[in-house]
Computed example of a mutant assay.
Amino acid sequence: MYRIYINDTALIIADFIPDDIGAYQQIDPQTFDFKEFYKHVKKAGEAVFVILTDDPKRMFKKIRKPFLVIKAAGGLVKNEVNQYLFIFRKGKWDLPKGKLDEGEQTRIAAEREVEEECGIKVLKVGDRLCKTWHVYEDRGQIVFKKTSWFKMKARKQKLVPQLEEEITEARWVDGGDFAFIKQNTFPLIKDIISLVEM
């Protein structure tokens, strides 16, 4: 199963209908045109679309093939008092992440981005939590961003938001207190939070 996010819209490509998606619209894989779909939904509110296919991997590859793919990495950072690190960027709560430098390993990029964006020292980069796909436009080009997310550990320390990346706040949030984050974040971030709430 693949989930592609365009702002608040999720496009799911799968060979079954997932239980947890709520209301959705089904799309015919035969007539699907991603460019048209993107134009239609990029300014839409929260919505879920599903493409049912026998071969989700093949369908996903076909959809993203014409477009530029950018690799990024980030972290879900936990401290010793069970708090998680969030950033506030462009009016929404988010998690620290960024693009890989030329030839950089994903895990190293994730650690570097977290440290740069929040002004902290990461103690440990753990297992990969998940991969996400986010689609956006850059200079008129549609771009697929593949982000690898890692579990990380850090001491509770003073946070210094990277203002040049438009991060206006970095905050430690108690493990059971994600409600206010969820009210003002992207569906993609909600998906990542749900992995630690289980």
Rank of each mutant, 00 (worst) to 15 (best):
I189N: 01
P96K: 14
I142F: 12
D19E: 10
R128E: 14
I6K: 12
Y24R: 00
E166G: 04
A73T: 01
V173S: 09
G175L: 00
L129S: 03
K156H: 12
G74L: 01
K57F: 14
Q157V: 02
G74K: 00
E102G: 00
Y5W: 13
K145G: 00
T31K: 14
F180S: 12
E197R: 09
A10W: 06
C118K: 12
R64W: 05
A72I: 01
I189P: 03
I4G: 07
R155G: 06
G126R: 08
F178G: 05
V143W: 02
D19G: 04
C130W: 06
F178R: 10
F37M: 00
R128H: 04
T168E: 15
P56E: 04
C118G: 12
D127C: 00
I13V: 12
K158H: 07
D20H: 13
E116W: 07
K65M: 05
G103I: 00
V125S: 10
V143S: 01
V81H: 06
R89G: 01
K97R: 14
A44W: 09
V41Y: 05
D33G: 09
S148Y: 11
V135S: 15
T185Q: 08
Q26E: 11
W133R: 01
Q25N: 02
K151D: 05
L159V: 07
I87Q: 12
R107V: 07
T132R: 02
N79C: 03
D55P: 05
K39N: 06
F186C: 01
E164F: 10
E165W: 15
G119P: 11
E116C: 10
V196F: 03
T31P: 07
Q162L: 13
D8I: 01
V41M: 05
F60S: 11
Q26F: 07
M1L: 01
Q157Y: 09
S194C: 02
F150K: 02
G176N: 10
R128C: 00
K97W: 15
E36V: 09
D19I: 06
A10D: 02
D19T: 02
I193N: 00
E104M: 04
